[in-house]
Design a protein around this nucleic acid. Structure first.
Lengths: 176, 176
DNA sequence: CGATGTAGTACGCGACACGAACCACTTGCC
DNA sequence: GGCAAGTGGTTCGTGTCGCGTACTACATCG
């Protein structure tokens, strides 16, 4: 369904071209799986398009439960935490003023609860309600299914390689 | 900056755990690069988190030029096409009614132009203005830089492997 | 105690996305 | 030819999201 997803990158320019300049000629060594017969888009385009695919999958799951991606993420963060608004904002990369509305809407649906902090009378602690817990549990199952479906064409070896490489890339940006 | 990005997946549950069940024990064979020393998050979590990293990078580039991700994507799609609104909507995965506003705002900034189709008096064709072209050109350079920076920790071999695998995954979803 | 900082909220604004309703035109069919 | 059905776009109303600014209440430091 997502056809081009061009992502403002150069994806669409190349249709029957040679591989990207950055990727040394397909060293074609260990290649026996699906990856071997596919035109290499280059790091930039492949990651950009991949990100849109994944986001679309997440959006689909969220929509199935009447949520947006950001709401689903909110619930996800709260699975094992009971942070204040500020901390929550940091986790989601939002401004604290954006959190108020986000939590308001989730609270209105009884997915989330605000409780007064015992140690700081200014602060509130945000936590999942039972319904929130249940919803995020089912959501996680669906996310798992959807993303696994994305990688279904790959061989087991390729999939676990991709997992390792993506993990390594991600690991380089979560420090601090 | 994006700390957890938990993405409603199980990312945050595991902090010091064993690798995911789906990923067979790190076969540690070809491993000499960064990926070898990193905890494997599993396909689902690693791809989810990766997608948020990439989206954040794209959002940063867009913001640098006063655009949103979707606007940047719009310009990207128009780089080598002059589609109608409907087709544009398909490319971006949006409803046609959403396109009107999107193109309106881009047109108001002189990045995009509507012209009457010569063959169908109902249709309009959307194309980039010279300024739109210039902006998307600079944007693409920045996107390239940003995404490459994300993958900077990987070795050349890992990077091109990742590129191949991501390309293969993406290729399985662009058919039709 | 007062000055300064921090946690949250309120408000206004604009972008984004959808569905439903609506024209204007095209196409298919009799 | 002419009408029914389909298609391309827009408009409108609604809701979500995200920001910046301003403001209140409390904490902390001196």
């Amino acid at each position: 369904m997502p056809d081009d997803l061009a992502s403002a990158s150069s994806a669409s320019r190349r249709r029957t071209d040679a591989p990207d300049a950055v990727a040394p000629p397909p060293v074609g060594r260990d290649g026996t799986g699906a990856a071997a017969q596919v035109e290499d888009l280059g790091v930039v385009d492949s990651l950009a398009q991949l990100s849109f695919l994944v986001q679309a999958a997440l959006g689909k799951v969220a929509a199935e439960h009447g949520l947006s991606i950001i709401q689903l993420r909110l619930l996800g963060v709260l699975r094992d935490r009971t942070p204040g608004m500020q901390e929550l904002a940091r986790h989601l990369g939002l401004d604290k003023s954006s959190m108020t509305g986000l939590v308001d809407r989730a609270e209105r649906r009884d997915l989330v609860r605000r409780t007064a902090s015992p140690h700081d009378r200014r602060a509130v602690l945000v936590s999942l309600t039972p319904q929130g817990h249940e919803l995020v549990r089912r959501g996680a199952v669906e996310v798992d299914r959807q993303i696994r479906a994305l990688a279904a064409h790959l061989t087991d070896a390729e999939r676990s390689q991709l997992s390792r490489l993506a993990s390594a890339l991600v690991a380089g940006h979560m420090t601090i």
